[in-house]
């Protein structure tokens, strides 16, 4: 045995979360399926006219991705809370900040990253101009990281509650607003042929701020939830 290293501990935690996700492939596919189904609702509700759909596409794609990320974030800590793993994480002689970051990273990899990668497919279904697709993917890649960071704050505060599902939406949705505004604006700018980089830079700033602060809030939330 050698002295435990924090980096190795966090990588092990990240790998554990990913192994758990991969061993339940159906659960990993759920947000993608949700994305597909809700996108399919919009032409049914708004009418199939391609121009109208293209007009709404940036906002619609972003809102649906946001909801998909929100729905999965409720489960980030729930399983580990129920079976006692979270207690052990809190007691492990390792900085909780980094452990939490590993959880959030794993959540982003199995929700945000996958959503961003499949989003071009749904963009085409909604008639989004092809020129805007790189902007959509980039903005989703960055923005979904913020969604994961903020969503996990909500998850940490509601994990001890029996009916956390609805509650987490109420807590987290107002906090999602800036991401939604700049994410969909980035796509809209690309549609209009305007530069996208400023929007991505702002999203990047939000990611940085989130990485710096969100794990602190999540760690505090988990300690409270374990205690309740």
């Amino acid at each position: 045995m050698s002295a435990p290293s924090t980096t190795r501990f966090c990588l092990r935690l990240l790998r554990r979360q990913l192994v758990l996700a991969v061993r339940r492939p159906a659960e990993m596919g759920n947000p993608l399926l949700f994305f597909a189904m809700v996108v399919a609702l919009f032409p049914l509700g708004l009418g199939p006219a391609p121009e109208a759909l293209a007009g709404f596409a940036p906002g619609v794609l972003w809102i649906v991705a946001l909801l998909a990320s929100l729905l999965t974030s409720d489960n980030v800590f729930r399983g580990d809370f129920d079976d006692g793993s979270l207690e052990q994480l809190l007691l492990a002689p390792q900085p909780l900040y980094l452990g939490v970051l590993a959880y959030i990273g794993a959540h982003w990899l199995v929700s945000g990253l996958l959503l961003s990668l499949v989003s071009p497919l749904f963009a085409l279904m909604l008639n989004l101009p092809a020129a805007a697709i790189p902007a959509l993917v980039c903005s989703l890649l960055l923005g979904s990281a913020v969604l994961s960071l903020v969503g996990c704050i909500g998850a940490s505060l509601t994990v001890g509650l029996r009916r956390g599902g609805m509650l987490i939406s109420l807590l987290v949705l107002p906090l999602y607003v800036p991401v939604l505004i700049f994410g969909s604006a980035a796509v809209q700018a690309a549609v209009d042929g305007l530069p996208v980089a400023p929007y991505l830079a702002i999203l990047g700033a939000m990611v940085s701020l989130g990485i710096a602060l969100a794990p602190l809030a999540v760690a505090a939330g988990l300690r409270i939830s374990i205690d309740a």
């Binding site: 190795r8 935690l13 052990q88 492990a92």
Partner: peptide
């Protein structure tokens, strides 16, 4: 088990 003990040491 490997995960449980990983916080305190590398086994």
């Amino acid at each position: 088990l490997a995960w449980h003990v990983s916080g305190a040491g590398d086994w």
